[in-house]
Design a protein around this nucleic acid. Structure first.
Lengths: 368, 368
DNA sequence: GGCAATATGACACCGGTTACCGATTGTCTC
DNA sequence: GAGACAATCGGTAACCGGTGTCATATTGCC
């Protein structure tokens, strides 16, 4: 095991014939520095493969370069997307990303996170939904001296400490789009109470229906848990309603998949007899049959912005805090069969597999 | 912002009337310490809420407590499962988990990772498939002085530095189980060349077929890319073969889902006319229709063991390095319709949704 | 009283940083 | 051409918050 000690700032100083202080100036890009000596020192640094010890730096600077990602696994792809996005931003900095999956329901949640932050002396933390909605948690993190950026579905915090998707508007646009496809009887599957995302999506559904001039009918609305089974249960209820809805907006993909099972199990054709839209654009959405039309957060862009806000206070204000979701149009949503009495039902799709055809409708790819 | 400086070892020493060194001994649980002074110091530590500064410790000890997780997103759930597993092991230690998603195809891959390790002075790294199969990478990490543990589908390394699932045997068992269900014509979708997991699963398929006394027929074998579309392509080929296969083993779930689309699109009933087994147990597997029977790595157990091996050399040898996968039986695999000429096809399932019934067959939940 | 075992402290050190002072050189001003 | 001034860099020291080494003080025991 080649364990030769790594070169230190002293080695660099000695070999380049300057003082520690000057090397330090080079590392920190001090402006008052002769160009020649800078080159010289940089040459030695390159030759030695010198990398400043971040621990020593952290100690002397009395600050750290670790940012924490705290989450309670909302969904794996989202978490991973966030990690990738953060990394794109910090790649060429000296920051590192430390992850901490937690259990939202643990009574020791706060103590756990406090201990994590104190022990690692984190510089900042990023909170993912749903725990990003916990104000007490955010306050505690701040009291511990680290900057906090929260990711969520709505304005949870001041814009300097927030990246959020405008779920309400995205859902309203999607629902309105269904109405444009001729649907008049549109059902809704809500997420669990206590989730801000669920609340925003409910409001968005109501907005969209109102904009389309359609009434809200409790008989074709259900509340789920964001889990697959609750989507099935919603199917049992909504598909038994008369008249049956011709379209469904589900507050997430997993419930949409559960609902879809029930619909297909009853011989209902999707999208010919029933259109379904989900939310999240999970991998499953693209892999079920028919491929699910769904709303997608611009996760990576949000994560990049969040990381910028974390590591650079100057960026905190300039970076956007509200992001617009995309509607990913696949085969599961199409024009309403009975809408005009004449048209054959055709899926309105971007990338649906199978027999789907693209149909030029009002483009609602980007919610306004 | 309450920015009162955190208490240091000096504060603790002063308030408890002992020297720094003694406090240090308390922190490090030195055995040669008077019980009374220990209590006294511990009381002060608790009162002040003192937490030792890991950067200072790292500097003095000339070692670090960061372990890196390097991966090229094999699949989101796997990565997240690994993160959770690692965290369970290091939760009560002073280690932290730093993540680094990378791009396997980047020409700067090695330099990138080298820089990451050197800059953060990592103590150890864990490599996930498929980059865990890169020997050059593993060697470089070791040359940089950090311990390496690799996760994979087969014996890639010495057992002290490995956690692997025995894919070959798991697939063989699953295929043999299909033969026990009466299937005689079993198709196979291979993963891409160059992936160790793909190779092992191919070998496992051949093993299982041989054990069942069934011949390998190239007409019902295809090579895919692990992507959904390649599963569809495999469907186009295999479903056109005569006689058509009655069962399919796909080397991963995503391709199985693609294959399933094609089968359902051709009006083939699953599992009545065709059984399908996948590999990975992704979220999609449980959410497609019918729910997919699939092979599942014990990811968390593997990750916990890997973390143990990383942080404690003593555990490196004692912890297991080869893990056995589970066969998750759902509705997509069932007895072969024409097998005995009399039996009605019934899905062999554990937790299938819908009309599936559990059927007492040879239990193959755990591959030997 | 001598000696070993136990318990504790003094001090240098890890690899960077800042603070402060001073030296050298070059440039500008009169 | 002398003096003032700025720019550039070095030297020294202290410090960040822990740890190792080694010496010393205290205790128990024969």
């Amino acid at each position: 095991m080649p364990k030769e000690p790594k070169p230190t700032i002293n080695d660099v100083a000695r070999l380049s014939g300057v003082s520690k202080k000057t090397v330090s100036r080079v590392i920190n890009k001090s402006p008052l520095l002769n160009e020649a000596t800078r080159k010289k020192v940089e040459a030695v640094i390159a030759e030695l493969g010198y990398v400043p010890n971040p621990q020593a730096r952290a100690l002397a600077l009395r600050r750290n370069f670790l940012i924490g990602l705290i989450h309670d696994n909302p969904n794996a792809q989202m978490v991973l997307g966030v990690q990738e996005g953060i990394l794109e931003t910090i790649r060429d900095t000296e920051f590192a990303l430390v992850v901490r999956p937690v259990d939202r329901h643990s009574p020791a949640l706060l103590d756990d996170i406090r201990h994590f932050i104190e022990q690692q002396r984190l510089f900042g933390v990023m909170l993912l939904p749903p725990i990003s909605e916990n104000d007490e948690l955010a306050d505690m993190c701040r009291a511990l001296g680290c900057t906090v950026v929260r990711m969520g579905s709505a304005a949870l915090d001041k814009s300097e400490h927030l990246v959020a998707s405008n779920d309400r508007q995205a859902v309203a646009d999607a629902v309105y789009w269904l109405s444009e496809l001729g649907h008049k009887r549109i059902g809704f599957i809500a997420g669990p109470e206590g989730f801000r995302s669920a609340r925003e999506r409910e409001l968005g559904f109501a907005d969209g229906m109102a904009r389309a001039g359609l009434p809200l009918d409790p008989a074709i609305m259900a509340r789920g848990t964001y889990r697959f089974e609750s989507g099935q249960a919603a199917g049992d209820k909504l598909l038994a309603a008369t008249p049956r809805p011709t379209a469904i907006f589900s507050s997430n993909d997993e419930m949409a998949a559960g609902f879809l099972h029930r619909a297909l199990g009853q011989g209902i054709r999707v999208p010919q007899d029933l259109s379904i839209i989900g939310f999240d654009n999970t991998a499953t959405a693209a892999h079920i049959w028919p491929p699910l039309t769904t709303v997608q957060w611009p996760i990576k862009a949000m994560a990049r912005a969040a990381a910028s806000k974390l590591i650079d206070p100057a960026d905190a204000a300039s970076q956007p805090s509200i992001f617009l979701s995309d509607l990913i149009r696949r085969a599961s949503a199409a024009t309403c069969a009975g809408a005009h009495g004449t048209d054959a039902p055709a899926p309105a799709t971007q990338d649906g597999h199978g027999p789907a055809e693209t149909q030029p409708l009002t483009p609602v790819t980007k919610s306004r």
